[in-house]
Nucleic acid binder design. Structure first.
Lengths: 114, 114
DNA sequence: GGAATAGTTAAGTATTGACTTATCTATTTG
DNA sequence: CAAATAGATAAGTCAATACTTAACTATTCC
């Protein structure tokens, strides 16, 4: 599947990096400048800007420049998209468990009544 | 953060590939052999095995071989770990919104009573 | 036992990813 | 206006990904 990126691909890919997750953790508490995002990270500014670009392309963050400062913020909607996929998997998984339990129950009932 | 992989890194990284997500979608409905996982994917068996290895290393799936067939299954616990991180971000995000709303409310109250 | 089945290993390639340093451009601020 | 601040762009490096083909190993079935 090389080179065909859906929106979920980009989101999960963006979330896979600890530096980017740290940036999102900061942003989930409110807007921040690029420098603020960079401060706790041990890497150069260009690296941080590249991570920010990845987050923006994934739709997980957005930013706009005012004067010389770029203010960044979290895009919670995309976070929700990711959660939806995970929830769907969990739901299927649990549905199967429920069916299994129900089946085992009929076996037990049959045992009682046979 | 090159070369220091936490468990979340591996999980998100594994989830970033559409072929691997397809495998997990299949596995969320119950166990499957490697061939079954491979069938809907347009790639060679070695490629599928490599994807499976990524899922296992990320803790998202496990497998064991019986005879000549390897049976794979979903590991829902690791899926939950991922959900927890996302839930935490959403919670922080919403808490900030609530605080903001409460603050705006005090402004409004002050306006009425002043 | 021999052919088909199911998976495995090895090794190679092309593309992405995650940085770096160096340089450059706007905006404040003293 | 000069210096500090905040960010941006370019270009290069090195490692990791996502495949591929070819060859090989166990099972199972006839």
């Amino acid at each position: 599947m090389l080179n065909q990126s859906t929106s979920l691909d980009l989101a999960f890919q963006a979330l896979a990096d600890p530096a980017r997750r740290a940036m999102l953790e900061r942003l989930s508490q409110g807007p921040a400048s690029v420098s603020e995002l960079a401060k706790p990270l041990q890497m150069s500014m260009p690296a941080v800007l590249q991570h920010l670009a990845v987050l923006e392309q994934a739709g997980l963050a957005s930013s706009r420049k005012t004067g010389r400062v770029r203010s960044c913020e979290l895009n919670a909607a995309r976070l929700e998209d990711v959660q939806k996929w995970l929830n769907a998997r969990r739901a299927e998984w649990e549905a199967r468990f429920d069916r299994l339990a129900a089946y085992l129950n009929t076996l037990d009932e049959g045992n009682k009544n046979g």
